[in-house]
Computed example of a mutant assay.
Amino acid sequence: MESPTARPRTVGVAGGLWITLGVLLAVAGALTAFQALGNGELTMVLAGVLVGGLGAAFWASGVSLRRGRDTRVVLTVLGGLLSLFVWPALLAVPAIVLQYRASSRRWFDSRRSID
């Protein structure tokens, strides 16, 4: 059994999945925005910026999760909404499950008592 102060592997993997999802969304949003900007499509530019911002939020929350901040509720809500689309669900669903495993929950609970 891992000590309560050591980050469980489930939290590390979940954070890595959220970071990966965030980077993919940020890159996709930036590419969409730049391409639409070249074509003069303002609506698609705004959509690309929105997707890029969402990606940045996932990335930042994933980093915070790995560092011990309990961002599970935010990530679960955003990941659940994003899981309406097929490819993000491939990363979001396993990350949601891993961050609520017993070892993850115990680790976050122990960190809450320290703070």
Rank of each mutant, 00 (worst) to 15 (best):
I19F: 10
G16A: 04
A60R: 15
V97K: 07
Q35T: 15
S103D: 15
A33R: 02
G38S: 06
P4I: 00
G12F: 04
V23K: 06
G53A: 07
S104A: 15
G62V: 03
R9A: 08
R66T: 09
P4N: 02
Q99H: 08
P88T: 04
V11T: 06
M1S: 13
P88W: 08
A36H: 08
A102S: 15
A36F: 12
S64Y: 01
L37G: 15
D115S: 14
F108S: 00
L24M: 14
S3I: 00
G79Y: 12
T76A: 14
S83N: 02
F108R: 05
A89Y: 11
L78N: 10
D70T: 08
R69L: 09
S110E: 12
V63G: 03
V97R: 12
Y100Q: 14
L25C: 02
F85T: 06
L98M: 12
A56S: 11
S61Y: 06
L91S: 02
N39E: 14
V77F: 13
F108V: 08
V73L: 15
L21D: 06
G48A: 04
E41Q: 13
R105L: 09
A95I: 13
D70H: 04
E2K: 10
A47F: 14
G12I: 01
V86H: 03
V45R: 05
L81K: 01
V11K: 06
L50A: 15
T43Y: 08
D109S: 14
G48N: 09
